[in-house]
Amino acid sequence: MSEPQKADAGIAKPKSFQEIILRLQAYWADKGCAVMQPYDMEVGAGTFHPATTLRSLGTRHWAAAYVQPSRRPTDGRYGENPNRLQHYYQYQVLIKPSPPDLQALYLGSLAAIGIDMEMHDIRFVEDDWESPTLGAWGLGWEVWCDGMEVSQFTYFQQVGGHDCHPVSGELTYGLERLAMYVLGIDHVMDMPYNDPQSPIALSYGDVFLQNEQEYSRWNFDIANTDVLLKHFEDAEAECAAILSQPVDDPKTGKRIVMAQPAYDQCIKASHLFNLLDARGVISVTERQAYIGRVRTLAKACADAFVQTQAGGWTPETAA
């Protein structure tokens, strides 16, 4: 007698891009993460969200999960490439200190979005992470599902030039790619954004194709490089100006280190650099210099953040 056909681990396949996001939100909320919202600035990756960059610094414990829209101007393909977008979504989880069962928690999240561990080949393949612009690095893996990279898994060792104590565990899911795989879609623009049975069914293309075309054109050909350059320098100057303020606010009489406003300027500079890069006006040698300038800002912001209460500062430790 043959074995009865088992259902895929008992979890129904999701029907749409948004359902995968909703399931991840529910899963990580259930595991105790603060479900946060995207940061309201243009960033190149979910790591730039202060909930990761800044909160991975200092001694205070932290657990957050969120979607972060991410922009990589050089990856624009006018919406024609099946997998490449200049605007896409990352799902980001940061838990500090990294729990001992983080790998198991992560695998649970894959099961939650309908990947059956009994049928698929999941692998942790060495991939050390380094962000030259953030002065950060960590060790970990890219996670493969049947040969496809579905996530980055990193134990942060250093951020903004500071050693991480305790160490944060960071998970980053490339949502479009993961969802395409789970939903069995070959071209990102064909992916159902909401339930295909909805009265008004929308595909990813319905939502984003026009945006991709518009931004690809602007990123590559139109963006005014003189203005971008000026903005870059302004952001750099503003960041330094913010951090040069005395920590005690004369108006309120309180100690207010403005780490995050300064960090906003660092994020801006980073994105402006990416735009300049897409416009092809940065030479190979200049590239390193620009990255170095952004890193200097990131480090200064990290230095400032550890002087805040969220960064572990207390009047006692300061004494």
């Binding site: 088992k6 099946p82 009994e118 049928m119 698929h120 080949d121 999941i122 049947d146 040969g147 070959d186």
Partner: peptide, 28 residues
């Protein structure tokens, strides 16, 4: 030839299909 880290009840059909799909994207 790809080498998986497990046996499955469909003799690796799902795993192989996934790998083939990834390869097609790479080769494109």
């Amino acid at each position: 030839i790809t080498v998986a880290n497990r046996e499955t009840r469909d003799q690796g059909v799902t795993i192989l299909a996934g790998n083939q799909k990834v390869l097609a994207a790479r080769l494109s």
